[in-house]
């Protein structure tokens, strides 16, 4: 396969995300301008200019009309997808680590870091109408997190719940009617970097610093499968058409200068979802991979790395013909 390299960022990629149909690919990095690309040919549609700090998290709603980003400049912004204009800015007390639209995009959630004597907090906001007045609007819920900070987040059961991944490896399920915790498991030993749904949202895969990616049942946070690697895992994604999980990671960013690309294990690794066995690798990045995402049609996937590049890979026929020996 011939990957397309998207070179729109000046610093490490923090997150990449496809929209629902997969024709657009959003990317954010530690520079302050999230980008949006046409995933088919790698053409850049635009950049969202306005943040002052590293952009940690991005999300797009299901109609691809609104785009949300959370950044280290203590703000969360909602943008118009078509024009790249800022619709509103929601300021917070510390940097915004995660943000996400709900399935219907009627609500959104963002969480802030425990920093500058501010606690880690989770905010749920109403995004049915987004305009200048949204900035001062009261959140629907404001939940302070007393324990370890939230490092990743997912909306659960359409819009009724939230699953958060924490710095210490815990996963917590929240009920949004009451704003209370309803389930809590600790299957990871390190920070949960990323969580992604499978296609029908019955299972999700977590990526953790403890060198593993794990598959959980969404209903009761039951640990189903574990995918082991030798390096911290930064992101994992489930193929929508095959029983495959792609896992991206590598040496910690701070140790990269002391390791060569060959031993750094900066490849995307493909695991069989059921047998937990690695069956393929794709090389290319020369830094750890920070985010991976499958195209919603399952025929291509992208990875964004600490090296600042996003690589869009379209699978060869050999990938679809490959049969797992068992």
């Amino acid at each position: 396969m011939k990957p397309i390299i998207l070179q729109g960022h000046e610093r490490a990629i923090t997150q990449i995300k496809y929209n629902r149909e997969g024709d657009l690919l959003f990317s954010s990095s530690k520079d302050n301008k999230p980008n949006v690309w046409f995933s088919l040919n790698g053409e850049r549609l635009g950049t969202f200019n306005g943040h002052q700090g590293a952009v940690w998290c991005i999300d797009v709603d299901w109609t691809s009309t609104r785009f949300m980003s959370g950044a280290g400049d203590n703000s969360c912004k909602i943008w118009d997808c078509e024009t790249g204009k800022e619709l509103c800015t929601i300021s917070s007390a510390s940097s915004v680590r995660t943000c996400l639209f709900s399935y219907s995009a009627n609500m959104a959630v963002y969480t802030t870091d425990k920093a500058m004597k501010q606690p880690c907090e989770m905010f749920i906001i109403d995004t049915r109408i987004v305009d200048d007045s949204s900035s001062g609007q009261q959140p629907i819920f404001r939940i302070p997190i007393s324990g370890p900070r939230i490092s990743s987040i997912l909306w659960d059961s359409l819009d009724e719940g939230i699953i958060t991944g924490h710095e210490n490896g815990e996963l917590i399920a929240w009920d949004l009617k009451s704003g209370k915790q309803i389930n809590r498991v600790k299957d990871h030993d390190g920070l949960v970097n990323d969580m992604q749904w499978n296609k029908n949202r019955t299972m999700f895969v977590t990526a953790s610093k403890d060198h593993t990616a794990k598959l959980f049942d969404a209903k009761d946070l039951l640990l189903l499968k574990t995918y082991k690697t030798e390096r911290p895992v930064n992101s994992a994604s489930i193929s929508p058409i095959m029983d495959h999980v792609v896992v991206g990671g590598g040496q910690d960013a701070m140790d990269v200068t002391t390791t060569s690309a060959r031993v750094g294990k900066f490849d995307s690794r493909f695991f069989h979802m059921v047998f937990e066995e690695e069956f393929g690798r794709v090389k290319g990045h020369f830094g750890p991979i920070n985010s991976v995402a499958f195209h919603p049609d399952g025929k291509s996937y992208s990875s964004g790395g600490e090296d600042g590049f996003v690589r869009v890979h379209t699978f060869d026929s050999s990938y679809f013909e490959y049969n797992f020996d068992y």
Partner: peptide, 8 residues
């Protein structure tokens, strides 16, 4: 901004 690389 968009580069097609060699085969991997």
């Amino acid at each position: 901004t968009t580069i097609v690389t060699e085969d991997v």
